[in-house]
Nucleic acid binder design. Structure first.
Lengths: 111, 111
DNA sequence: AACCATACCTAGAACATCTAGGTATAAAGA
DNA sequence: TCTTTATACCTAGATGTTCTAGGTATGGTT
């Protein structure tokens, strides 16, 4: 896909929230899910994800708790909050509106 | 709409390119078009637009030329380049893909 | 003359991402 | 038991960007 940075930035938050809205998850798994959802086109580096997670936590869109993998390795699980769910709805609507605007505008003159 | 900054940023470039792809235009008119297209929900400040135009010009996605309004006031018109058109296609496709991903993901669990 | 709307511009604050490093540990294999 | 690999998390700071808050200029209107 080779996304411009600003699109990566703008899509990261809603994608993360949408994933957590389906089920609690942790850093490495979120990266794996995004990779899967995008057919391998989006491959986030972990160092890019964690600062975003921390920011989302600070904004209280998500919370975290320590858990363990089956093998005993510790993991930090993230859970969406009700504020996060509201934000997800709003972000998703904005994405749809902007996408519609853009597609219509471009469609007019069949680029 | 009350868009987060990163979404404003990510949508500004494709919107501007799409508008110029329909017809050459100038700063104030682009702002007016965006306002119209969004039903008044997106109101860009001019001071926000010009730096973006200059950056797009630097990247050679658009070019500019001086013209005049009917009343004689000078205007800087912008025109999309072929690089800009390619970029517009790519950006529009990326927007559609990301939007599809997001809507599907959210739709699954009817937020 | 004064004011308003149009029209463009820039410096720098503010903010966020993302690179490039780092730590730690379980499992596997030699 | 030692090394390697994969998993798992973290942060400082460079980098890049938007956007605010200023500014200039001018034609039309009162």
């Amino acid at each position: 896909m080779d996304l411009p940075k600003d699109m990566v930035a703008a899509s990261a938050t809603p994608l993360i929230l949408a994933i957590l809205n389906n089920a609690d998850s942790y850093g490495y798994d979120i990266i794996a899910q995004v990779k899967g959802l995008s057919d391998g086109e989006m491959q986030w580096a972990d160092g890019m994800l964690y600062p975003i997670m921390h920011r989302l936590e600070k904004k209280e869109l998500i919370t975290s708790y320590w858990g363990q993998s089956e093998t005993g390795r510790k993991r930090k699980y993230y859970q969406i909050t009700s504020i996060g769910q509201e934000s997800l709805i709003s972000l998703t609507n904005n994405w749809r509106k902007l996408n519609d605007m853009l597609q219509n505008l471009v469609g007019e003159n069949n680029v």
